[in-house]
Structures are given as C-alpha cells and as structure tokens.
Design a protein around this nucleic acid. Structure first.
Lengths: 140, 140
DNA sequence: AGTATAGTGTTATAATATAACAAATTTTTA
DNA sequence: TAAAAATTTGTTATATTATAACACTATACT
C-alpha cells in the first residue's frame, strides 16, 4: 500500500494495456490509431498518458526511435535508469537487466565528481535471430 | 592522408562550422535559420549534411534532445559510440571521455553473448554551475 | 463540503524529419 | 581523358512527432 500504488486513470490504463500487449516498442500515433475505438481521439490524450506512465516507470521511451515500450523489470519504479539493446535490422528492443552494468552506471562520476540522477543507455547490434537469417541468406 | 580525410562538401562545411561554434547542442531548424544567409534554404539540405557528419563522426546526435553537437574527442571516427552528460537545468551537454567506462561498454555482452556495434549513453543530472546557482538562490 | 490536484476532451498548431525528382558536381576507373 | 558511377545539390511538398491553450470533469484530501 505504498504511495505509488495509486490506480491509473482510464486513458492511462488503455495506453498501458496496448503497450504491454506489444513485444516491440510502439509509436505514439500507432497507439492513437489503435485505441481510437476505446474513446481516445487526439494526440494530447495519448501523450499525457505516456508522460505519466514514464514518470511512474511503467513504460520507457526509446529515445533513438521515438517509441515507447513497457518496462520488463518487475516493480520497476526507476524511470530514467534504463538500458536497452536494439537490433539494427528488425528494430526489436530488449530491456537489459544486468546488475554489474547497473552498478557501473550508478557509481559513475564525471571529472568534477558530479553525481547523476539517471541515465539512458542504448546498445545497437544485430540480434541473434536476424544474424541467423543473414547467414541463411548467404547460403542460397 | 587516410581514406576518411576526404574533404567535406560546401553544405557539410557550413553546417559543421555552425555546430562547432556552439557550446550547446543545436537543433536542426536552428541550424537552418542561422545558415540561410550562406545559401542553405531548406530542411533537407541541413538534414543531409547532418547525416553525413554523423556518419563520419564529426558530430553526434543527442537523442533525448533531438539536437546535434560537435564531437569533442580529437580525431573521433567512431560514430555511435557516445557518452554524454546532460544538465537537467541548463541542458548543456558534455561529451564524456572516460576510458574505463568505454571499456565496460565495449566489452558488454548480453545474455545471448551478442556483441554490439555501438551504443549511446546519456547521463542526466545537475551540472556544477547550476547546482551552485541553486544554492545561491536558497540563501536569499 | 470545500478546495486542491489530476485528468479529460478538443481544436489548432508547432517542431522535427523525410520523400521524390531533376540537375550539377566530384570521384573512379577503364 | 572520356565515360560511368557515386555523391551532393536545390526544390517542393508532405509525413511524423509533439505541445499550447482552454473549458470542463473527476478524484483525493482535510
């Protein structure tokens, strides 16, 4: 019963629900067109819900794609501390959960000794499945 | 006289020059309005130059800001391996040059063992100068 | 109950980015 | 050096992403 467990509003639920259904990150206007049947009519309604969901850590923004993805880390309440891998080929995004990397990032100080509140790290590469496909295509 | 030292085209030079003059990252349309007197008239001319400059590592894109900043690391030819600190208050961006952090990032493998081609890391916090200002404001 | 806070619905518009096409320039290589 | 290839340019139009502003409604908080 902590303070953060306040329930979501109608629009927030609709938007979160749609994002969670998708394996890949989704774009704001794709969300919009997919939830219009549920009574969400205009961009601001989507963006407001997105802002809130990001704030409470339920979703993250994939900066390099202008897209949004559900947080896969259970009980995530740490927005702005995110690590993703992004496939250059199929654009699938996975949230990385690596304690050692997290520690490195959390402990990082710049030359001034400045401590940072948050970070966003995106790794780019070719995912296993796309790599396999490429090898198959070479064979033929 | 390596292969990458081919000289830049006219528009590329104009755009790079403007970005390098600025301490803070600049936005595409701000570049456009500032270089119109030099004969660049339309967005595509700016975006093409930006694409090229990013590709050769002369500038980087600050993803969370849709802005562009000159590479501060001498002879940088590694686009897509970038680390920045961004001040939440004044939005100033500094490129971080930390060999230990670079090594951690370069060596990172995900659970599958996937190797990544590149990464982009953005740290968020309050820069020293803004922190000092905040303290001063508290005093009065 | 009264007030503060957060969320809704709406219209309009701002800000960011790319498609498509014809022409000119530079680089490569035969 | 002439022809072919690749890159860059200039241009118009349009797509995509995001926010401003305003009136109103619902919910949470003493």
């Amino acid at each position: 019963m902590n303070k953060k467990s306040k329930s979501l509003s109608k629009n927030q639920k609709i938007v979160l629900d749609f994002i969670q259904k998708n394996k890949k990150p989704v774009k704001a206007y794709s969300i919009l067109s997919n939830v219009q049947k549920k009574g969400i009519n205009a961009p601001p309604q989507v963006y407001r819900a997105l802002d809130k969901l990001i704030k409470i850590g339920k979703i993250h923004r994939v900066e390099s794609q202008n897209s949004f993805v559900a947080c896969k880390i259970s009980n995530c309440d740490t927005p702005h501390k995110t690590v993703f891998s992004i496939c250059n080929s199929c654009e699938i995004v996975s949230e990385i959960n690596d304690p050692k990397l997290f520690k490195n990032l959390k402990d990082f100080r710049d030359k001034d000794g400045t401590v940072f509140d948050g970070y966003n790290l995106e790794f780019f590469g070719t995912c296993k499945s796309c790599k396999n496909k490429q090898i198959e295509n070479t064979k033929h």
